[in-house]
Design a protein around this nucleic acid. Structure first.
Lengths: 130, 130
DNA sequence: ATAAATGATACCACAATAGTATCATTTGTC
DNA sequence: GACAAATGATACTATTGTGGTATCATTTAT
């Protein structure tokens, strides 16, 4: 089991690369630098554009650039875009069955770990990586 | 994305239940108490038996009981049985491509978070849950 | 007009997760 | 010894998530 999936990983690398460049960066350029599949990278950048982390420019001379400063792009945020909500502590039992709803010892402990992890993940920004 | 899968979850609950009983516990009893599918629970208990966390007894009057004390059964161990190695920090890029092998800022930071998480998960035992 | 870029969308292959089903074996009880 | 109640082993299936590919539409600089 991996906590970071391939698209999150590629997204972070792409964002790091883009953040180092003043001018727009094309998919082709990123594909060449990172050695990842073209279509896949394109889809990832489109998603980042939709989430308003990148701005895109169509047509010749187009490409992508950051829409927000790298210090405000958090790893946890990128993970949530590509992997959805991350949770250690959700319960699998049907609500009526769980014997100690609300005071489940396992959930409580996991929630603490989760909180700590999120706090730490929030401190990692694109700015802190480049 | 869930950090704990269904079989890990059921395994933990089953272990908690079993640890509260001196006598052997059958699959049927667990299924009734936890409201989970019979075959699935059976498979989970068989796996725990193979990993020598439970002892099993065949035949009439048979069932399962703990093979090791609850204070020595760690959540992280159960997770590893059902979910394999858990890692935040593995790299997806082909080795030649990764621009900063060994000193990748992202991996370094993730490895720290991972270590902390494991440390905390190791402190949760079945004994601490019941 | 054309070429170079992204936008939108649909599709596909593979692996992991979440089970189900069945036959074999062991063992206590009558 | 027969039978029922339990697990052991194993194979199969369904659904979802991951990791892509492919294609047509649209925009825009030259």
């Amino acid at each position: 089991m991996k906590l970071i999936t391939r698209n999150t990983d590629y997204a972070l690398r792409a964002l790091c690369y883009i953040s180092k460049h003043k001018t727009v960066v094309t998919v082709d350029e990123l594909v060449e630098k990172l050695g990842v599949p073209h279509s896949f990278m394109r889809k990832i950048l489109q998603q980042l554009n939709k989430k308003e982390i990148l701005s895109s420019f169509k047509g010749q001379g187009g490409g992508f650039k950051l829409k927000i400063p790298p210090a405000r792009i958090y790893v946890i945020g990128i993970m949530r875009i590509f992997q959805g909500q991350i949770e250690l502590s959700s319960c699998f039992l049907k609500k009526d069955v769980c014997p100690n709803k609300g005071k489940c010892a396992l959930r409580k402990k996991l929630r603490l770990i989760e909180k700590n992890m999120f706090m730490r993940l929030k401190r990692i920004t694109i700015a802190s990586l480049v």
